[in-house]
Amino acid sequence: MCGGLVEREQVADDLGISRETVRKWRARFVKDRLEGLTDRPRPGPPRRITDEQVEALVTKTLDEKPSSGDSHWSTRSMAEATGMSQSAVSRIWRAFGLKPHTVETWKLSTDPQFVTKVRDVVGIYLSPPENALVLAVDEKSQIQALDRTQPVLPMAPTTPARMTHDYVRHGTTSLFAALDIASGSVIAQHHRRHRHTEFLRFLKTIDAAVPKDLDLHLVLDNYATHKTEAVKKWLLRHPRFHLHFTPTSASWLNLVERWFAELTRRKLRRSAHRSVIELERDIRGWINEWNKNPKPFVWTKTADEILETLAAYCTTINDSRH
Rank of each mutant, 00 (worst) to 15 (best):
P112C: 10
S90V: 00
D70C: 01
A95H: 00
H101W: 10
Q113E: 15
L135Y: 13
H101C: 05
M155T: 12
L135W: 10
A145R: 13
H72M: 01
L146V: 03
S85I: 06
P157N: 07
G83P: 09
K107F: 07
D147Y: 12
T110D: 15
D138G: 02
T75I: 01
L146C: 02
S68D: 15
V121Q: 08
Y125D: 06
Q86L: 00
A156F: 11
S67H: 02
A95W: 00
L98S: 01
L108P: 06
P157E: 14
R94K: 14
A161M: 14
P66V: 12
E80G: 07
V118M: 10
T75S: 02
I124N: 05
D70A: 15
P100Y: 04
V134A: 04
I124F: 02
V122T: 13
V122P: 06
M163N: 01
T149G: 04
E104P: 00
P129E: 12
T116A: 15
A161H: 09
M84F: 07
T110I: 07
F114R: 06
L153C: 06
H72K: 00
S109A: 04
S77Q: 10
V121G: 04
K117M: 06
S87Q: 14
T149D: 11
A136W: 09
T82F: 01
Q113L: 12
K107N: 10
V137H: 01
R162P: 00
P66D: 07
V152N: 03
L108R: 08
T102V: 11
G69F: 14
T149S: 05
V115N: 11
N131G: 06
S67E: 13
M78A: 06
P100S: 03
S127P: 05
D120G: 01
A132C: 11
V134T: 12
I143E: 05
L108W: 11
Q150M: 14
S68P: 05
K140D: 14
G97V: 02
